Simulated scan of single mutants.
Amino acid sequence: MRAALYGILFSIIASMLKNSTRMSFRDFMDALEMGARNIIGVAIACAAAGIIIGVVTLTGLGLKMASGLLGLSGSIKILTLFFTMVASLVLGMGAPTTANYIITSTITAPAVMQLGVPALAAHMFAFYFGIAADITPPVALAVYAGSAIAKSDPLKTGIQATKLAIAAFLIPYIFAYNPALLLINTTPLQVVQIVITSLIGMVGIGAAMEGYLLTHTGKIERVILLVGGLLLIDPGLITDIAGIGSIVAVFLYQMKKVRSSRQMTVISE
């Protein structure tokens, strides 16, 4: 809240530096009115999310969440992580950062810890997705705030925000499968390796979701990019080679397509 206040004050000060952006008293009052109108949607979303948080906390449902997630997934690691992700997204809706961590670390993180994942990695996994709820429909408070400023449709904006950030949803799984990314029981060489493979995996998944790498991708290319990115979640040597190989193969194929397109353009001219 303090950061937002300072941001507003510095924005007003910065606007005074040029005649073209300088705010008059009427502009200032209009901005206050617009802010009050735009905050209504965010306030409603906060109130609705608060009901969910209150029900989970006061009924004791959260205490049974860990055992329920493990029972639902059959203690299969990838399924447990997926269900924990969904639960953290729901529990993180509308919660401030501190409250978000308290809720997710006490309710969903224990399920990940019971899989043998280090405590720090388990807490970061749950907390990360709790924060990601701000850009994930249907609540997506950050999206509501952004769409109010842009005067766009909140649901469409939320879907677009999720698509743009989908590659970032890969990172917590890397926390769980390879805590080296959090500098847990690792060496500098392992850190370099995991950072490189993580970045390549994020590029692959991002390109698959957006349908664009060097140029527009076809359906088969998107599938290969998505599979390659998902393979890089597992830190094993075979999966890393297969994942990087898949993404590099599509990259080289797209380079060839771009060159062919440029040559055709030159010939036609």
Rank of each mutant, 00 (worst) to 15 (best):
I166T: 07
I171N: 11
A167F: 07
L155S: 00
K151P: 08
Q160H: 09
P154Y: 02
I131H: 15
K163G: 01
T136K: 12
I159W: 10
I166S: 13
I131L: 15
A145F: 06
A167T: 00
A167M: 07
I159L: 15
K151R: 11
G158C: 14
I171G: 11
G158I: 12
K151L: 02
V143S: 10
Y173V: 02
G158M: 12
T162W: 09
D153G: 14
T157L: 12
I159V: 12
L170F: 10
T162Y: 14
A148V: 10
A133V: 10
A142M: 00
T162A: 15
P172K: 04
G130T: 03
S152W: 06
Y144L: 11
K163V: 06
A140L: 06
D134G: 11
F129W: 03
D134C: 00
A150D: 12
T157W: 00
A167V: 02
T157Q: 02
A140N: 15
A142K: 13
I149T: 01
L170A: 00
A126C: 13
F127T: 04
Y173S: 07
I149W: 09
T162C: 14
G130S: 05
A145K: 08
P154A: 06
A148H: 08
A142I: 03
A142T: 05
K163Q: 10
F129L: 01
A150V: 05
F169H: 12
G130A: 07
I166E: 08
D153M: 04
K151Y: 01
F127D: 06
L141S: 02
G130L: 09
Y173A: 05
A168H: 13
S152D: 01
P172T: 05
P172N: 08
G158E: 02
S147R: 12
A168T: 13
G158V: 08
A126Y: 02
A142Q: 14
A168Q: 15
Q160I: 07
P138G: 11
P137W: 00
L141G: 12
G158W: 10
A167S: 10
D153S: 14
K151S: 07
I149R: 13
Y144G: 12
T162R: 00
T136Y: 13
A142V: 04
T162P: 01
I149H: 06
A148S: 14
K151W: 08
Y173P: 09
K163L: 04
A126G: 03
V139R: 01
P172A: 09
A165S: 13
A132R: 07
P154W: 06
I149S: 12
Y173T: 02
V143R: 06
F129C: 01
